[in-house]
């Protein structure tokens, strides 16, 4: 564990807490893409298949349970909670993400560290996470003004993988045999997809104005 990865995990945890806060405090999920939440639930379920087989550390196991539990809870809430579900932007959240899921799974069948069930699903989860934010970014553009908590949620979710990139650079420099090309390349693509969001987020912060993404 290094400071970059810890910062990344904490930033990721903060993004989840901000989203939970938004949903429970405002009893609303307006501006949140259910499709991105479902993609993230798939990402965690596919990535943490080793939850019971490989014990890394208490921290690792607890964080995996937190990410799986929170993503499923948010999906459940947005689908079935009688108050929250009414504020879901169903007609705006129309990204056909099964194309993404199919493409990522096909890529994982071709490009993986080892051809085993667990490794193929791990690679699938890495590729899928890189594009999982797309429905959310599309929804933000369509829904015009973005409330503060939603903007902060997306910001922290994008920032966490940027910390992971620093972690991979640090590990590459300090650990002789460290190579995680699948994670690194996907992480760069994932962070790049946030580039324009980060730009408009910074502008709104500098001008102390509402976050507006151009349509």
């Amino acid at each position: 564990m290094n400071i970059f990865r810890l910062a990344g995990d904490m930033t990721h945890l903060i993004s989840v807490l901000v989203l939970l806060l938004k949903i429970y405090a405002t009893k609303s999920c307006s501006g949140i893409s259910l499709k991105t939440q479902e993609l993230y639930a798939m990402v965690f379920l596919a990535r943490y298949l080793d939850l019971f087989s490989d014990f890394i550390s208490l921290y690792n196991t607890v964080m995996k349970l937190v990410f799986i539990g929170s993503s499923l809870a948010i999906v459940w809430c947005m689908r079935y909670h009688r108050v929250v579900r009414r504020s879901y932007d169903r007609e705006l959240d129309t990204f056909r993400y099964w194309i993404l899921v199919g493409a990522c799974f096909t890529l994982a069948l071709v490009l993986h560290e080892k051809f085993s069930f667990q490794e193929v699903f791990w690679a699938f989860s890495i590729y899928l996470e890189a594009v999982a934010i797309l429905p959310q970014l599309v929804l933000l553009q369509r829904s015009g003004n973005v409330d503060n908590l939603t903007g902060q949620y997306v910001f922290f979710l994008g920032a966490y993988r940027a910390f992971y990139i620093l972690n991979w650079i640090y590990r590459y420099l300090t650990e002789p045999r460290f190579t995680r090309w699948i994670s690194c390349v996907s992480g760069l693509v994932q962070t790049a997809l946030y580039a324009d969001f980060f730009y408009y987020y910074f502008i709104s912060w500098k001008n102390n104005a509402k976050l507006q993404l151009p349509a």
Partner: peptide, 10 residues
């Protein structure tokens, strides 16, 4: 082939 080392990252 050697099993890949366990994934220690989240």
């Amino acid at each position: 082939s050697p099993a890949t080392e366990p994934k220690d990252e989240l």
